[in-house]
């Protein structure tokens, strides 16, 4: 299966992809390239156009404009061959509730020319003990692993996962991550979407940050975070209204950038241990009270905030 693909060119290429729904431009000139054997992540907020983009790449939606190539083939002329070689997990698919785990896997396995046995698939996703259970009796995490199992029944060269862990508890997320690590160890390529930055950082070799249908940043998680030019973020919330804005604090030593939203001011800093005392001294000097202060290592979330001024998840 997958080993041969590793040497060849990119597994997914799309150029200038565009898709409109009435007046909404869901995908607005998207360019992507996924390399063989990597795990590539599309990270973006709700409505960024991730699902639309992925479904176009899966051959389920027609783009209005743009070119798509998957495994060196194109949709419309090699559909049968392509479908044999990809695995798909859709966002929020509900499988037939009255069928058992085993029956579902066997049904999906029947559509493919090759692939592992039903038991082997169940073993991969650790659902052997649930073999005879109806889908309706599975937990959220088990359902999600079953959905991934259906995407693995053909040992695909390329696996598409649309928000594989949304809504799962930490333990279920970790189980799924391990399962995907196993798939990659066998040489598979993954294209996944998520709006969890930690998921992107843990799983993905490269990440494209998507906003309003376009890629606004691309690189390894490390590169993206490094592009902030600061390893840490200091966030302070002021107790009351004041004339102090972001600019007033940008001049502090060690601050690379500052931004404000409401009473919260975010400083990107290289050396927090120097900035924090200076910040406190400055606030004290101006007689401003603090309601909260946090310091954390810069993440992909900060990259998103830095480029858009908004958060990935509106909480």
């Amino acid at each position: 299966m997958t080993g041969a693909a590793a040497a060849a060119g990119p597994v997914v290429v799309c150029r200038a992809l565009r898709k409109r729904y009435g007046s909404v431009v869901a995908v607005d000139g998207l360019d992507l390239e996924v390399r063989a054997g990597e795990c590539f992540g599309l990270l973006g907020p709700n409505g960024a156009g991730k699902t639309t983009a992925v479904e176009i790449l899966e051959g389920l939606l027609e783009p209005d404009e743009g070119r798509v190539e998957v495994l060196g083939l194109t949709w419309g002329s090699h559909d049968g061959e392509l479908r044999q070689r990809i695995g798909v997990q859709l966002q929020e698919t509900q499988l037939n509730e009255k069928l058992t785990v085993e029956e579902i896997v066997r049904l999906y396995r029947s559509f493919y020319r090759r692939g592992p046995s039903v038991s082997r698939v169940l073993q991969m996703v650790q659902l052997e003990s649930k073999r005879g259970s109806w889908v309706s009796r599975l937990s959220g995490g088990q359902k999600q692993r079953l959905a991934v199992a259906c995407a693995l029944v053909n040992e695909p060269d390329l696996l598409f996962l649309d928000e594989p862990t949304t809504g799962l508890d930490p333990q279920s997320r970790r189980q799924l991550w391990e399962l995907l690590a196993g798939f990659r160890a066998r040489g598979g390529t993954i294209l996944l979407t998520t709006h969890y930055m930690d998921e992107a950082e843990t799983l993905c070799d490269r990440v494209a940050i998507v906003d309003r249908g376009r890629v606004i940043a691309l690189g390894t998680p490390r590169e993206l975070v490094a592009s902030l030019g600061a390893g840490h973020v200091v966030e302070c919330t002021l107790a009351g209204p004041s004339g102090l804005g972001a600019t007033g604090l940008a001049a502090l030593p060690g601050v690379t950038a500052a931004s404000a939203s409401g009473r919260t001011i975010r400083l990107r800093v290289t050396e927090p241990h120097r900035v924090v005392p200076a910040l406190l001294a400055e606030l004290d000097r101006q007689g401003i009270d603090l309601a909260g202060l946090t310091v954390h290592q810069a993440t992909l979330e900060d990259v998103f905030v830095a480029r858009t001024g908004r958060h990935l998840r509106d909480e």
Partner: peptide
């Protein structure tokens, strides 16, 4: 099957 997107999922297979 259509409202639960089972049809879409099936359409993503070579069925």
């Amino acid at each position: 099957a259509r409202t639960r997107r089972v049809l879409k999922r099936l359409a993503a297979t070579p069925m």
